[in-house]
Design a binder for these strands. Structure first.
Lengths: 127, 127
DNA sequence: ACGGGTACTTACCAAAAGGTGCATACTTGA
DNA sequence: TCAAGTATGCACCTTTTGGTAAGTACCCGT
Protein backbone atom coordinates (compact mmCIF):
# COMPACT_ATOMS: atom_id res chain seq x y z
CA UNK A 1 0.00 0.00 0.00
CA UNK A 2 2.92 2.29 0.64
CA UNK A 3 4.88 1.19 -2.41
CA UNK A 4 2.83 2.38 -5.34
CA UNK A 5 5.52 4.84 -6.33
CA UNK A 6 6.72 2.36 -8.95
CA UNK A 7 4.08 3.29 -11.49
CA UNK A 8 3.60 7.02 -10.78
CA UNK A 9 6.79 8.59 -9.51
CA UNK A 10 5.25 11.89 -10.55
CA UNK A 11 2.81 14.07 -8.73
CA UNK A 12 -0.88 14.71 -8.82
CA UNK A 13 -0.47 18.34 -9.70
CA UNK A 14 2.50 20.62 -10.01
CA UNK A 15 1.86 22.10 -6.62
CA UNK A 16 2.45 18.74 -5.08
CA UNK A 17 5.88 18.65 -6.70
CA UNK A 18 6.70 22.21 -5.77
CA UNK A 19 5.84 21.65 -2.14
CA UNK A 20 8.45 18.95 -1.92
CA UNK A 21 11.00 21.59 -2.76
CA UNK A 22 9.86 24.51 -0.63
CA UNK A 23 8.57 22.85 2.49
CA UNK A 24 10.95 22.72 5.37
CA UNK A 25 10.80 24.94 8.39
CA UNK A 26 13.48 27.37 7.19
CA UNK A 27 13.34 27.14 3.42
CA UNK A 28 10.97 30.00 2.70
CA UNK A 29 13.08 32.22 4.92
CA UNK A 30 16.29 31.17 3.25
CA UNK A 31 14.79 31.79 -0.16
CA UNK A 32 13.51 35.14 1.04
CA UNK A 33 16.98 36.27 2.06
CA UNK A 34 18.83 34.74 -0.86
CA UNK A 35 16.46 36.55 -3.18
CA UNK A 36 18.19 39.73 -2.06
CA UNK A 37 21.50 38.50 -3.42
CA UNK A 38 24.35 36.10 -2.65
CA UNK A 39 24.86 35.70 1.06
CA UNK A 40 27.67 34.27 3.11
CA UNK A 41 26.91 31.39 5.42
CA UNK A 42 27.42 33.34 8.60
CA UNK A 43 25.48 36.30 7.32
CA UNK A 44 22.58 34.02 6.40
CA UNK A 45 22.69 32.45 9.81
CA UNK A 46 22.39 35.84 11.45
CA UNK A 47 19.52 36.78 9.14
CA UNK A 48 17.50 33.63 9.66
CA UNK A 49 17.17 34.21 13.38
CA UNK A 50 16.77 31.14 15.51
CA UNK A 51 18.08 28.61 13.05
CA UNK A 52 20.79 26.23 14.20
CA UNK A 53 23.86 25.36 12.17
CA UNK A 54 22.58 21.87 11.61
CA UNK A 55 19.26 23.03 10.25
CA UNK A 56 20.66 25.80 8.12
CA UNK A 57 23.25 23.55 6.49
CA UNK A 58 20.72 20.78 6.03
CA UNK A 59 18.16 22.96 4.33
CA UNK A 60 20.82 24.63 2.20
CA UNK A 61 22.06 21.22 1.08
CA UNK A 62 18.58 20.16 0.13
CA UNK A 63 17.96 23.34 -1.79
CA UNK A 64 21.33 22.87 -3.42
CA UNK A 65 20.62 19.29 -4.41
CA UNK A 66 17.31 20.47 -5.83
CA UNK A 67 19.19 22.96 -7.95
CA UNK A 68 17.57 25.95 -6.26
CA UNK A 69 20.62 27.42 -4.61
CA UNK A 70 24.26 27.47 -5.48
CA UNK A 71 27.14 27.14 -3.05
CA UNK A 72 30.30 29.04 -3.89
CA UNK A 73 33.49 28.25 -2.06
CA UNK A 74 36.00 30.99 -2.76
CA UNK A 75 38.82 28.77 -1.52
CA UNK A 76 40.22 31.71 0.37
CA UNK A 77 42.50 31.64 3.35
CA UNK A 78 39.97 32.49 6.05
CA UNK A 79 37.11 30.18 5.01
CA UNK A 80 34.72 31.98 2.70
CA UNK A 81 31.57 30.49 1.20
CA UNK A 82 28.42 32.03 -0.08
CA UNK A 83 25.02 30.91 -1.27
CA UNK A 84 22.91 32.34 -4.05
CA UNK A 85 19.83 31.47 -6.08
CA UNK A 86 20.38 29.63 -9.35
CA UNK A 87 18.41 30.69 -12.43
CA UNK A 88 16.12 27.78 -11.65
CA UNK A 89 15.79 28.99 -8.08
CA UNK A 90 15.02 32.48 -9.24
CA UNK A 91 12.22 31.14 -11.46
CA UNK A 92 10.80 29.35 -8.44
CA UNK A 93 10.92 32.47 -6.35
CA UNK A 94 9.10 34.33 -9.10
CA UNK A 95 6.38 31.67 -9.18
CA UNK A 96 6.08 31.97 -5.43
CA UNK A 97 5.22 35.62 -5.52
CA UNK A 98 1.43 35.33 -5.82
CA UNK A 99 1.42 32.95 -2.91
CA UNK A 100 3.51 35.45 -0.94
CA UNK A 101 1.01 38.11 -1.82
CA UNK A 102 -1.91 35.99 -0.74
CA UNK A 103 -0.15 35.22 2.53
CA UNK A 104 0.56 38.86 3.17
CA UNK A 105 -3.02 39.85 2.56
CA UNK A 106 -4.36 37.22 4.90
CA UNK A 107 -1.60 37.03 7.46
CA UNK A 108 -3.93 37.94 10.27
CA UNK A 109 -6.57 35.36 9.46
CA UNK A 110 -3.90 32.70 9.14
CA UNK A 111 -2.26 33.66 12.40
CA UNK A 112 -5.64 33.66 14.13
CA UNK A 113 -6.45 30.19 12.83
CA UNK A 114 -3.05 28.93 13.94
CA UNK A 115 -3.53 30.33 17.40
CA UNK A 116 -6.93 28.72 17.62
CA UNK A 117 -5.42 25.33 16.85
CA UNK A 118 -2.45 25.83 19.16
CA UNK A 119 -4.77 26.79 22.00
CA UNK A 120 -7.06 23.81 21.61
CA UNK A 121 -4.04 21.51 21.52
CA UNK A 122 -2.86 22.97 24.84
CA UNK A 123 -6.31 22.46 26.34
CA UNK A 124 -6.18 18.82 25.28
CA UNK A 125 -2.92 18.26 27.17
CA UNK A 126 -3.33 20.30 30.38
CA UNK A 127 -0.60 18.77 32.64
CA UNK B 1 14.75 30.59 22.55
CA UNK B 2 11.65 28.81 21.42
CA UNK B 3 9.25 31.36 22.88
CA UNK B 4 9.92 34.51 20.91
CA UNK B 5 6.44 34.35 19.39
CA UNK B 6 5.29 36.96 21.89
CA UNK B 7 6.63 39.88 19.91
CA UNK B 8 6.23 38.67 16.32
CA UNK B 9 3.30 36.30 15.97
CA UNK B 10 3.42 37.13 12.26
CA UNK B 11 5.56 35.72 9.55
CA UNK B 12 8.71 36.71 7.74
CA UNK B 13 7.04 36.83 4.37
CA UNK B 14 3.61 35.92 3.09
CA UNK B 15 4.86 32.63 1.78
CA UNK B 16 5.73 31.61 5.27
CA UNK B 17 2.16 32.19 6.31
CA UNK B 18 0.70 30.47 3.28
CA UNK B 19 2.78 27.38 3.82
CA UNK B 20 1.23 26.93 7.22
CA UNK B 21 -2.08 26.54 5.47
CA UNK B 22 -1.20 24.33 2.54
CA UNK B 23 1.42 22.05 3.93
CA UNK B 24 0.23 18.65 4.99
CA UNK B 25 0.67 15.46 3.07
CA UNK B 26 -2.81 15.42 1.53
CA UNK B 27 -3.82 19.07 1.44
CA UNK B 28 -2.67 19.94 -2.08
CA UNK B 29 -4.49 16.88 -3.35
CA UNK B 30 -7.65 17.73 -1.47
CA UNK B 31 -7.54 21.28 -2.77
CA UNK B 32 -6.93 19.94 -6.26
CA UNK B 33 -10.08 17.82 -6.16
CA UNK B 34 -12.25 20.32 -4.34
CA UNK B 35 -11.35 22.87 -6.97
CA UNK B 36 -13.46 20.80 -9.35
CA UNK B 37 -16.53 21.37 -7.22
CA UNK B 38 -18.21 20.25 -4.00
CA UNK B 39 -17.37 16.67 -3.21
CA UNK B 40 -18.87 14.17 -0.81
CA UNK B 41 -16.66 12.68 1.86
CA UNK B 42 -16.65 9.19 0.39
CA UNK B 43 -16.12 10.46 -3.10
CA UNK B 44 -13.15 12.52 -1.94
CA UNK B 45 -11.74 9.53 -0.17
CA UNK B 46 -11.91 7.49 -3.34
CA UNK B 47 -10.30 10.32 -5.31
CA UNK B 48 -7.42 10.92 -2.94
CA UNK B 49 -6.08 7.39 -3.34
CA UNK B 50 -4.21 6.00 -0.39
CA UNK B 51 -5.50 8.38 2.24
CA UNK B 52 -6.93 6.94 5.42
CA UNK B 53 -10.10 8.17 7.10
CA UNK B 54 -8.09 9.62 9.93
CA UNK B 55 -5.86 11.66 7.66
CA UNK B 56 -8.59 12.81 5.35
CA UNK B 57 -10.80 14.01 8.17
CA UNK B 58 -7.87 15.61 9.97
CA UNK B 59 -6.71 17.57 6.97
CA UNK B 60 -10.25 18.56 6.08
CA UNK B 61 -10.78 19.83 9.63
CA UNK B 62 -7.63 21.89 9.46
CA UNK B 63 -8.58 23.34 6.11
CA UNK B 64 -12.01 24.04 7.51
CA UNK B 65 -10.66 25.76 10.60
CA UNK B 66 -8.45 27.84 8.32
CA UNK B 67 -11.55 28.89 6.41
CA UNK B 68 -10.36 27.25 3.20
CA UNK B 69 -13.02 24.59 2.89
CA UNK B 70 -16.62 24.40 3.93
CA UNK B 71 -18.38 21.36 5.32
CA UNK B 72 -22.02 20.96 4.42
CA UNK B 73 -24.14 18.49 6.31
CA UNK B 74 -27.40 17.99 4.45
CA UNK B 75 -28.96 16.39 7.51
CA UNK B 76 -30.47 13.74 5.29
CA UNK B 77 -31.61 10.30 6.28
CA UNK B 78 -28.67 8.32 4.90
CA UNK B 79 -25.81 10.48 6.14
CA UNK B 80 -24.80 13.03 3.53
CA UNK B 81 -21.99 15.55 3.85
CA UNK B 82 -19.94 17.37 1.32
CA UNK B 83 -16.93 19.63 1.21
CA UNK B 84 -16.29 22.61 -0.99
CA UNK B 85 -13.90 25.53 -1.29
CA UNK B 86 -14.91 28.77 0.38
CA UNK B 87 -14.39 32.05 -1.47
CA UNK B 88 -11.25 32.44 0.60
CA UNK B 89 -10.15 28.96 -0.38
CA UNK B 90 -10.81 29.68 -4.01
CA UNK B 91 -8.60 32.76 -3.81
CA UNK B 92 -5.85 30.63 -2.34
CA UNK B 93 -6.17 28.08 -5.11
CA UNK B 94 -5.94 30.88 -7.64
CA UNK B 95 -2.73 32.15 -6.02
CA UNK B 96 -1.37 28.65 -6.11
CA UNK B 97 -1.66 28.35 -9.84
CA UNK B 98 1.75 29.78 -10.80
CA UNK B 99 3.37 27.43 -8.37
CA UNK B 100 1.42 24.56 -9.91
CA UNK B 101 2.65 25.64 -13.29
CA UNK B 102 6.24 25.81 -12.12
CA UNK B 103 5.90 22.37 -10.60
CA UNK B 104 4.45 20.94 -13.77
CA UNK B 105 7.22 22.37 -15.88
CA UNK B 106 9.92 20.99 -13.65
CA UNK B 107 8.28 17.82 -12.42
CA UNK B 108 11.04 15.67 -13.78
CA UNK B 109 13.89 17.60 -12.23
CA UNK B 110 12.11 17.61 -8.91
CA UNK B 111 11.38 13.91 -9.07
CA UNK B 112 15.01 13.22 -9.97
CA UNK B 113 16.29 15.27 -7.05
CA UNK B 114 13.89 13.50 -4.70
CA UNK B 115 15.04 10.11 -5.92
CA UNK B 116 18.63 11.12 -5.45
CA UNK B 117 17.96 12.01 -1.83
CA UNK B 118 15.86 8.91 -1.19
CA UNK B 119 18.58 6.71 -2.60
CA UNK B 120 21.39 8.21 -0.57
CA UNK B 121 19.29 7.90 2.55
CA UNK B 122 18.80 4.19 1.84
CA UNK B 123 22.51 3.75 1.28
CA UNK B 124 23.18 5.38 4.62
CA UNK B 125 20.93 2.91 6.45
CA UNK B 126 21.54 -0.44 4.70
CA UNK B 127 20.20 -2.90 7.33
C1' DA C 1 -30.48 -10.36 11.78
C1' DC C 2 -26.57 -9.63 8.74
C1' DG C 3 -23.50 -7.51 5.55
C1' DG C 4 -22.49 -3.26 3.55
C1' DG C 5 -22.53 1.68 3.02
C1' DT C 6 -22.40 6.48 5.15
C1' DA C 7 -19.26 9.69 7.97
C1' DC C 8 -16.52 9.83 11.26
C1' DT C 9 -13.56 8.83 16.15
C1' DT C 10 -10.10 6.75 18.86
C1' DA C 11 -5.91 4.45 20.63
C1' DC C 12 -1.69 3.07 19.68
C1' DC C 13 2.82 3.17 16.89
C1' DA C 14 6.41 4.22 13.52
C1' DA C 15 8.80 7.42 10.82
C1' DA C 16 10.22 11.93 9.70
C1' DA C 17 11.44 16.46 10.95
C1' DG C 18 13.57 19.36 13.90
C1' DG C 19 16.55 20.82 18.09
C1' DT C 20 20.82 20.73 21.27
C1' DG C 21 25.23 20.60 21.82
C1' DC C 22 29.75 19.04 21.09
C1' DA C 23 33.59 18.21 17.63
C1' DT C 24 36.38 19.44 13.60
C1' DA C 25 40.01 22.08 11.02
C1' DC C 26 41.75 26.01 9.93
C1' DT C 27 42.34 31.10 10.75
C1' DT C 28 43.43 35.67 13.04
C1' DG C 29 44.07 38.72 16.93
C1' DA C 30 45.36 39.35 21.89
C1' DT D 1 48.81 29.81 23.77
C1' DC D 2 43.98 30.88 24.20
C1' DA D 3 39.69 32.70 22.74
C1' DA D 4 36.94 33.61 18.92
C1' DG D 5 35.45 33.34 14.17
C1' DT D 6 34.77 30.71 9.70
C1' DA D 7 31.90 26.70 7.75
C1' DT D 8 30.58 22.30 8.70
C1' DG D 9 29.71 17.29 10.78
C1' DC D 10 27.75 14.16 13.99
C1' DA D 11 25.28 11.79 17.83
C1' DC D 12 21.44 11.89 20.47
C1' DC D 13 16.90 13.10 21.73
C1' DT D 14 12.13 15.21 21.44
C1' DT D 15 8.28 16.73 18.79
C1' DT D 16 5.42 16.45 15.05
C1' DT D 17 3.36 14.02 11.49
C1' DG D 18 1.47 10.23 9.41
C1' DG D 19 -0.19 5.29 9.36
C1' DT D 20 -2.95 1.02 11.00
C1' DA D 21 -6.59 -0.86 12.73
C1' DA D 22 -10.34 -0.95 15.25
C1' DG D 23 -14.92 0.98 16.90
C1' DT D 24 -19.26 3.96 16.69
C1' DA D 25 -23.89 5.15 15.13
C1' DC D 26 -26.90 5.35 11.84
C1' DC D 27 -29.38 3.51 7.61
C1' DC D 28 -30.66 0.25 3.72
C1' DG D 29 -31.52 -4.08 1.19
C1' DT D 30 -32.01 -9.04 1.65
Amino acid sequence: MAKENSENPRFICGLHATLHVISGKWKPLILFFLNKGPTRYGELKRSVRGVSDKMLIQQLKELESDGIVQRTDYGEIPLRVDYSLTTFGASLVRAMEPLCGWGEEHEEDIAAAMDRRKTSRQEAKPV
